[in-house]
Amino acid sequence: MSATEIVFLLFAALAVGSALLAMTTKQLVHSALWLVATLGAVAGCFVLMTAEFVAWVQVLVYVGSVVVLVIFALMLTRQQSTISAEVTGNRWTAAVLGLVAAVGLGATVISGFHGERIEGHRIGSAKSIGDALFSDWVLPFEILSGVLLAALIGAIVISRSGTER
């Protein structure tokens, strides 16, 4: 077992453990902070899989902005009386469904890709990703900027519509 694999397994254990805590802890803000640990560990996994540019985008967009946005929303929607139980009544159904999804997907990938190895010859540096993005993927890139603009305008309209009433 190489050093890369050991570090990857450590990151994987960190990601799964903090994801479980993020989804089960009763403290709202702790949940968002555990998600930071999960997303950071996944970014580490990206680096180990030669995707260094994607890893930095993950750190910037997810850890930097999405989690801050979520913490803002948690603070803005703080209620006078805290919700008594943080989970719904169908908690066990949800647990069974999540377990079934994880085991089903895991069994599928194990039977399909057993024995395959990642060699890691092509490094996803900013230069190579940028070359691919602005030569072969220009049209999806431009459409995506339109989607982002629509989402931005939609978020502003939805946020303003309540204040006029």
Partner: peptide, 24 residues
């Protein structure tokens, strides 16, 4: 690195996320 490591990790994270969506 075996391809299975990231794939199994991804399946586990997906299941945990599904639980969170349904149970929270």
């Amino acid at each position: 690195m075996p391809l299975l490591y990231p794939l199994v990790l991804s399946a586990a994270l997906f299941g945990i996320g599904l639980y969170g969506v349904l149970a929270r």
